[in-house]
Design a binder for these strands. Sequence first.
RNA 1: GGUACCAUAGCUCAGUUGGUAGAGCAACGGACUGAAAAUCCGUGUGUCCCUGGUUCAAAUCCAGGUGGUACCA
Length: 301
Amino acid sequence: MKNKTLIVIAGPTAVGKTSFSIELAKMLGTEIVSSDSRQFYKEISIGTAKPTKEELARVKHHFINSLSIDEYYNVSRFEREVLDLLDELFLTYDYVVMTGGSGLYIDTVCKGIDELPDADESLRNLLKRRYKEEGLENLLDELKALDPEFYEEVDQDNPNRVLRALEVIRGTGKKYSELRKQPAKERPFNILKFCLNHEREELFERISLRVDQMVKEGLIDEVKSQLPNRHLNALNTVGYKEIFQYLDGNISLEQALTDLKTNTRRYAKRQITWFKRDPAYVWVHPNDINKVLEVIRNGIR
RNA sequence: GGUACCAUAGCUCAGUUGGUAGAGCAACGGACUGAAAAUCCGUGUGUCCCUGGUUCAAAUCCAGGUGGUACCA
């Protein structure tokens, strides 16, 4: 029954997922699904380290340049669209490679996510205003009254979490804690998960080099072209927010690049933390594609 | 070669009249359900340059050494 396999290639930013995945997809004769929440957007390419045109020509990629920067999108839509696409791809291929650094997006494809309402912008803005005017305490009191169970488990220092919970409760009339209790979904295909990683020092060196390379390729102009869109969520992103600061004249270019590198390192760390939590990942060095092939081979038996 | 100043966390530096040390940044660890490249939480990681001396006790005082910086030759 489960004779089809999704091969997940995860890992921190700048580790080398793109070229690794292309090699792997070539060897397996298949296509690539991107699980990168910023490479969707066709307007931003340099700062998101998208595959190059040449790379895109070597293997068919999905979910790269699939959205315009002002389009609303979320992880649930991604889940649905990827599952639909996989149905189709598995008619032709035994394996499909999924690669990208967005842990939540990967997990949602692999395990599903609870049925929750999409963001309700007007409600969200209302709650945001209350947060600014009244502070988090009042909102926490309300959450405690409406959903004591979630109040106990929520990160009470994190406004985003508290606001989202209230948004869902108000939007559905149900408790957030009850809506989030659905079990992980089973997928009709096998999943093999790999996480690429380097020694920390080498990863940081790669990050530094890549940022310098992005600047040479025209990062500043790309960010400049997005100044009118800067309020959009897609641009609340490492690589863009630092350059916006430079373009605003708040910091020097040198400082902006230093900040960009620092923030990229921190992002990489958060990614590693996310992937470490999932014991299903097999950790591999980006040179060691044979290890992946071996696991795939053993997986068949 | 001489004189002066300096040497403390990865970096920049604080450290009172002697009581084995602490800030910023960096880093490290963690959380994570429609904003996720987002958002949030936690943590000092040290041969106080070396050797000897004074002292109950030395990052701190003394001597010598080493290294650095500046000036004079």
